[in-house]
Amino acid sequence: MEATTREANGGPFRTYSEGAAIHLPGIDALTDQLVNGITLGMLYILVALGLNIILGLMGVINFSHGSFFMLGAYLTYQLNGAFKNIPGGFWWAILAAAVIVGLLGMAFESLLIRPLYKRIPEYTLLLTFGTALIFAQLVRKWWGDDAVRVDTPSYIPQSANVFGLQLPFYKDILLVIVTIVILTLVWLLLNKTNIGVIIKAGTRDAEMVKILGINMPLMFTLVFGIGSLMAGLAGALAAPVYAIQPNWASQWIVLTFAIVIVGGIGSFWGAIVGGLVIGIAQSLMALLFPPAVEVTAFLVMGIILLVRPRGLFGVEGLFE
């Protein structure tokens, strides 16, 4: 059986043929997988950064983050169909899906997470685990168990030639550019605006910021909204690349945890480096020893933990 492409096989992690043995790759295959890894890494970065911002400021582990990612993809599927006749409908669908997920995140925070702030952080993990179960079933009910797909509009070229490499245009070029733009925006938001300053100060000492007269509950809701929006956006951008399935949420959330642990909790650059490292490691493993693709992320995490217990960019004593 030949190794099949990710798209054809459904989930993002089925890149290989069954029962393949270890073999050494050629240079072409290596470049291919490296590019694949970077693309995958971009999506990982978006999801992990959203989780990391929420975790960093609020100390809330959002298990439903994967569900927001999945919802972003399904909403894009739904809206892409609805916006078929609008010029640029595809992009509006992505944007609308992300915004809806962001708003949903804000409502979610103020209704369910807020009563738990005074309590131990484990409860938010348990609560969001429960809501993740609910989201998964709702998605199954509305969109069915079978995978759905989103097609990129016809004006986006199939592939393009970059440095002599023939690359799928949307997946390997557009997606990377869009992600870099989003990351730049988030960096600017965190570092060059008042909101960013408050968020960063709140990460250090929420109480002190509250004393300075900042409406912290509002800030928390906003941050949760931004984090969810990023998850939704990642899902929306991933929608045309992979087949969308109800098990996306559980597949991605644990990986995201691994990325956050590798990068370090609450660190912007940690999420970026962690996402890229895991994405590339997984893609290379797909070449080297396919059955171990899924385990790779956790092995990398284990090694990093041994060397740096707080992750690559983590700070000692945060949220323990």
Partner: peptide
């Protein structure tokens, strides 16, 4: 310890 512990045990269970 704490939530960090929860995340790490979850990730290792995936192995």
């Amino acid at each position: 310890s704490g939530i960090y512990f929860s995340m790490i045990t979850l990730a290792f269970a995936q192995v």
